[in-house]
């Protein structure tokens, strides 16, 4: 089986992955305009201000939009289809969308818009397929994943 892609933190995203590694979901927050964004950017994409800072959010949210991938596009996921892909809007930063798989849902059909979800953190990668070994100390490869918590 082809290894699933592992996120490699960079200067802008390091805080996000470090947060995930200790079990905290963060969104980038701009002190200048008060809006949040995701994924983290070097400057606020809404107002251009420098220095957005990671802000811890509760990890609860709702499905903004979802689909079920039925045709593999990446060889590493050929054995995973069908699987959920979704954008989640955090309850405490609803202007933000976070791309995720959806755990705990039947892939027979997409999860409905508005369905409540909660974050959990999965070592390494992959659509609910747990991989035991971390890639390396300090690599920050805990992957935020959202689980359906109810209709």
């Amino acid at each position: 089986m082809t290894a699933r892609p592992r996120p490699v933190p960079d200067a802008v995203s390091a805080a996000y992955w470090a947060g995930a590694d200790r079990g905290a979901l963060t969104v980038a927050h701009c002190d200048a305009c008060g809006r949040a964004h995701h994924p983290p950017e070097p400057a606020c994409p809404r107002c251009g201000a420098d220095g957005p800072r990671p802000r811890v959010v509760s990890g609860r949210g709702t499905v903004f939009a979802a689909c079920v991938v039925r045709q593999a596009f990446d060889a590493a996921f050929a054995d995973a289809v069908p699987y959920h892909l979704a954008l989640v809007a955090p309850d405490d930063a609803p202007e933000v969308r976070i791309l995720t798989n959806l755990l705990g849902a039947d892939p027979a059909e997409p999860v409905a818009v508005g369905t409540p979800v909660a974050v959990e953190f999965e070592p390494a990668t992959g659509v609910g397929a747990r991989v035991d070994a971390r890639v390396g100390e300090g690599d920050g490869v805990a992957l935020p994943q959202f689980r359906v918590v109810g209709p």
């Binding site: 892609p5 592992r6 996120p7 490699v8 990446d74 590493a76």
Partner: peptide
């Protein structure tokens, strides 16, 4: 496709989720 095992840049928030 077979992508790189390490997802960098914008891919780091997309490729690990398939």
């Amino acid at each position: 496709r077979t992508g790189p095992p390490e997802a960098r840049g914008a891919l780091q928030f997309a490729a690990p989720y398939g």
